[in-house]
Design a protein around this nucleic acid. Structure first.
Lengths: 320, 320
DNA sequence: CGCTGATACTAGAGCGCTCTAGTCAGGACA
DNA sequence: TGTCCTGACTAGAGCGCTCTAGTATCAGCG
């Protein structure tokens, strides 16, 4: 295993100084096109790649590194990470990931990001206290993605729960439904907003809201079916899991979806896409969220922590 | 934003040299207990954390850094990453992650790991060619996790598909089934091994194997139901998706699972755990895989690339 | 002919660590 | 007294870069 070539090696081979190689590889002005080509050729021949660590160490102020903490257990975090990469690249930043797992807490994940001296932090659905988040924000720009929090100095990017709920109800209304129930998410984050938006949208349409206590699990959805008034023709559920529970309970009691009852979920989770489920749902737009998060993360003006709220999208599948 | 404290700051505050602070923080011999305590106290007061980048740069040969490339789209990769963290820690290594996404290929992911000068590479279910993998293995120990490949110099850690298939069939046999069919995975990776093991296990039990062409999607499973002989009382499917397709098609044709037909999948995927599915399945043991992968990754003797095959576990839920 | 101002390039310090090769004090021993 | 440890600590080079402050060369110009 021969040691990897360094700038020195490339410089020697190209017959220039180390500094010039640096100039060429950083793509900054100060070298002729001819020399650039020669340096790159030498680098390629040696299989040279700049050492990221040394590069970061050397660059005085800006590391152009953004730390991302995500939870491996949430598929949606995967979608966000996927969207964050190109967003970071287009801003000239690179990403370093740190996973939160069952056995590795958020604190450990964030700490390892800080050890890499990230310029800013993007935390996906963090569960830390507002105080802990504020403490992080003091040292570097910190963006909370996909969770609603109020913490001093912390930027927040999330989707508009009220708008999503409205979207779901309006979709059902546009399909001609008038007896629309909402199975709520109890005290889950976002449940209150979705419930309120449902009620308001119904009222605005001159209809009577019917809120049925639910929860964020399939079991909760299945139980809620028993509370469903007979005349209800459509249900907007708090989330996909709840909707799927409803779906199966309805099918078991021989009610056809969407013929007898239309059903819409919330989240666009993986199960919602299964062939035999094909749940209509509300999707958060990962690309928009990612772009907004990185915009805030790279914003140097640290005066005003911001809250960016993006609107979700309606995904009609086969249950409406 | 005051710059983060460095070793110099800690040294000054503790009244010792920078080198001694290094000794203390690396937890190596060469400092008295009393001084250790004083240095740590000074560090804590300043909120000092060693700079990971500088640490890696400075340490001549060994970076004790393992690069992990995973695909954000596979929940199982999340399980593996989760298992890798503690495994790495117990060996005194740290992990750096790089995600493969729809828009970010394996090559880019691996390249960024190499830019961090990882000592070795662990690739989760890589799709690169054996030649490309071999090329990587020339520069540093490379472990392919959860994919069967033959590439020169590359370590492979995977679960034993044949054993898993055998486990599934033996489970059905132990339940008293004798007419057991296998819905296969066509040309999917692992399908041949699982099919062969099924056939052998059946023959060894003196039974006639029934292999039905399937695939790795729900649709494939649903279609396979039509090919199912009437007298079959149990099915071992290629994977969970296929089994779930079977499950729904069976239910639609009013056949009860497990009463009329028992069903077992393979993978322990998220949908298999859903309340109304509760699919019995074969699970890969992430902890064992992770431990074996890191064992190989940190093995300095590079003479013999190894293949470690761990055995999977049977998970009985409600379909058998 | 010197002066200005590019452009192309280089020397060398410095980033925050690790690590080798020390120094220094004190104790054991002859 | 001198020699040889040993344990505690330090000086300083070096890791592979970046970046400031240069130098060298040349064209243009009065």
């Amino acid at each position: 295993m021969s040691p990897r070539p360094t700038m020195e090696d490339v410089a020697a081979r190209a017959g220039v100084s180390r500094a010039l190689v640096s100039i060429v590889y950083r793509n900054v002005p100060g070298a002729s096109d001819e020399t650039r080509a020669r340096v790159f050729a030498a680098g390629d021949e040696l299989g040279y790649r700049p050492d990221h660590r040394a590069r970061l160490l050397g660059s005085r102020q800006r590391t152009r590194l953004i730390g991302v903490a995500f939870d491996v257990r949430y598929p949606f975090h995967g979608d966000l990470v996927e969207a964050l990469y190109p967003a970071a690249e287009s801003l000239g930043y690179s990403l370093t990931l740190s996973a939160v797992t069952g056995s590795r807490g958020e604190k450990a994940a964030v700490q390892s990001l800080l050890d890499y001296r990230c310029e800013s932090l993007v935390l996906l659905g963090p569960t830390s206290s507002p105080a802990a988040l504020s403490a992080l924000a003091e040292a570097q720009p910190t963006v909370v993605l996909a969770r609603k929090v109020r913490a001093a100095g912390v930027h927040v990017v999330r989707t508009d729960d009220a708008a999503g709920s409205r979207l779901a109800v309006e979709h059902l209304l546009s399909l001609g439904h008038t007896r629309i129930a909402h199975v709520d998410g109890a005290r889950a984050p976002g449940a209150a907003e979705r419930r309120t938006a449902y009620v308001q949208t119904m009222r605005r349409a001159g209809l009577t809201p019917v809120v049925i206590p639910g929860g964020l699990t399939e079991a909760a959805g299945a139980t809620a079916v028993q509370e469903l008034p007979q005349d209800v023709t459509a249900v907007a559920a708090f989330n996909d899991a709840c909707a799927i529970g409803l779906l199966h309970a309805l099918r078991e009691s021989d009610r056809q979806v969407p013929e007898d009852i239309a059903l819409i979920g919330y989240d666009d989770s993986t199960p919602s896409r299964l062939d035999h489920i094909q749940l209509s749902t509300i999707a958060q737009n990962a690309d928009r969220l990612a772009a907004a998060a990185l915009d805030l993360a790279t914003q140097t003006d640290r005066e005003s922590p911001q809250e960016v709220i993006t609107s979700p999208d309606l995904l009609t599948r086969k249950t409406t």
